[in-house]
Write a protein that binds this DNA or RNA. Structure first.
Lengths: 166, 166
DNA sequence: AAGTAGTTTCACAATTTATTGAAAGTTTGA
DNA sequence: TCAAACTTTCAATAAATTGTGAAACTACTT
């Protein structure tokens, strides 16, 4: 396979994968492009290579920076901003987990806490309370597990997680 | 808070959460409704309570059954089918992981393997190979970790994972 | 302070995804 | 075997999400 074809396929695949992870297709494609680009790219280069508009490129690059999946670089004597992708996969996954935990788990826990104020008067409301309680318990376990996972480092993950989880 | 209001809020929140997990909003809402219903519901009851069409209800109930998040029940002397939700949160998460691993990780690994056939002639293609190799390594680690996670059981998860991951 | 290079915003357009509902298909029992 | 009860399918439609591009904005340079 040719390099150009390989890059193209990779960008497509990464785009598809990303869209299942709260990262929209273009956002993931920009990340993929930067992953396989030997040097930092400017917004114009990203636009040209992926055939997307300036606005789209800008918004998705900003989002990638927010998620810490891309960094901004200033080149000596250049006024333009350049961008590079985070290439350590553990960091990529870690940052995605951080964002999603913030956006999903935490709001859910808030709602569950509100729901605890349903008075358990009759049988049905008692059962409701049971369901809510179970989910809360599970969520708090998941929350601490993720918290620890986030705090642990790359080498630990790659080297140890696999053995530990046996 | 009133029970009815609590149920409503729960259904909304579960729908939102689900849509970030490859489960569309309605699909997740049906699951939520079944979770908080003391008795099994028929398709008609689901339609009525969530205000959705027959087709929509049917398709999403089927999908939930495929994902093993809902089971079909036949009541004595009734021709209609009734449905109940999986209430064990560990099973719910486990089944979601199984589906997503199948739909995302495995296709990605296939693409990565194809990409290995890019010939590493010049420097740029060698760098490309490096990136692909890293991701492959990471994916296979993630794959085995998830595989073990899937095989492990609920009590193990709740009781041990938390301590182990320290 | 005016010009230029670069970045951001946002109303509208295009695309993608979910929903409807009516028709077709299936199963059950008399 | 028929027809009632129930389930499934799918083309049309609606809703939600993404993308566009021109205009506004910012900041650097001379």
């Amino acid at each position: 396979m040719e390099l150009a074809e390989g890059k193209e396929k990779f960008i497509q695949a990464w785009g598809t994968l990303g869209s299942n992870w709260g990262i929209n297709r273009t956002m993931a494609q920009i990340h993929a492009l930067l992953l396989v680009s030997p040097a930092p790219l400017s917004a114009d280069e990203v636009m040209a290579q992926l055939n997307i508009s300036r606005g789209n490129a800008n918004m998705n690059i900003r989002a990638l920076i927010d998620w810490r999946l891309v960094q901004k670089i200033h080149k000596q004597g250049e006024r333009k901003e350049f961008f590079v992708a985070e290439k350590d996969m553990w960091e990529v996954v870690r940052n995605v987990i951080i964002e999603r935990k913030k956006k999903e788990l935490e709001p859910m826990v808030r709602v569950l806490n509100e729901l605890s104020t349903v008075e358990a008067v009759d049988n049905e409301s008692k059962e409701f309370q049971e369901v809510v309680k179970d989910i809360k318990l599970f969520s708090s376990k998941a929350d601490s597990a993720l918290e620890r996972l986030i705090r642990s480092d790359s080498s630990w993950f790659v080297g140890t997680f696999l053995k530990m989880i046996k």
